[in-house]
Design a protein around this nucleic acid. Sequence first.
DNA 1: AAGGCGGGGGA
DNA 2: TCCCCAGCCTT
Length: 347
Amino acid sequence: MFVQEVTKWYQINRRTLPWRNTNDAYIIWLSEIILQQTRVEQGLPYFYKFQERFKTVKEFALASEDEVLKLWQGLGYYSRARNMHATAKAVMEKHHGVFPTRYEQLLQLKGIGEYTAAAISSFSANEPHAVVDGNVYRLLSRFFGISTPIDSTQGRKQFKELAYELLKEAQPAEYNQAIMEFGAIQCKPASPNCAECPLSVNCVAFIEGIVNTLPIKTKKTKVKERFFNYLVFRNNNDLLLNKRIAKDIWQNMYDFPLIESANRLSEKELLISDDFKQLISTKSVIIKAVSEELKHVLSHQVIYAKFWELECNHQENSTMQNGFWVAEEELESYAFPKLVDNYLKKF
DNA sequence: AAGGCGGGGGA
DNA sequence: TCCCCAGCCTT
């Protein structure tokens, strides 16, 4: 009953999306990685950009990581872009440039976990692997009244088993699309459309009036505060950039020489700090301006950032391993985190 | 098992 | 504000 109703609803209410109605595993892979933890509306323009720039997995593999990250700029979770690039190369080397469609092979590729392997293998080859994403957790927990936390090991196991059980009576490709679409459009997280829901008569959460308490999640991410003091060195038309190579946020993207402090720094505290002296090195520098404090919120940290604009009479960066000077017109080819991009747009 | 990893949108 | 989004990887 559940499977039939969800499928019937889907056939009437499905959105037309550019990655549907294809069984090209490469195109489906593009869309699935972009959509991880990302709403369709937010990912859509990126899907078009990537599809246009990289017509084939070979073109993707031949690109530079810098270019891939630049295309990905603004979408977040940048490891997705780095992993995609690695996977494109692996497909060239290990699969002769033919994107695999088998679940077990897909799982071997970077950035592809159980969900994405199930999605690609079912959509491209109709393999019977159940997708279990946020939409599926929500819909199943409500309809069957399951209160096991979805972020527990037991919960993941229970929902996965149920999803696979339901898939037995279904057409994998269509039903996997259907159950996610139903969760995204009909059984939404907040204010789901229960009044017009074809499942409501049998929905445990609806009958018991606990729709908005499900699904249950136990862990909450705690947010860390960080204080960034960016030094924007300018010499005539050139700016000093930094490549972020540390194991930290925004890996392999670009920003400016950075002094991070445990708390908010006054101008005096910044100027007398050892970090500042070290970055200045032998440069003679004039402070031209300082930006307002920009607050940048990530899911797991809040960054308070100030940009110090420094006029510099000569170029040297001996104290910075990953520093290099770039002409202002060249900035557009570097991938910047949103925080830095926001600053650059103003200045 | 827990924590890290972006950015945006809805209520 | 808080929560969630077509999750995955490392520790």
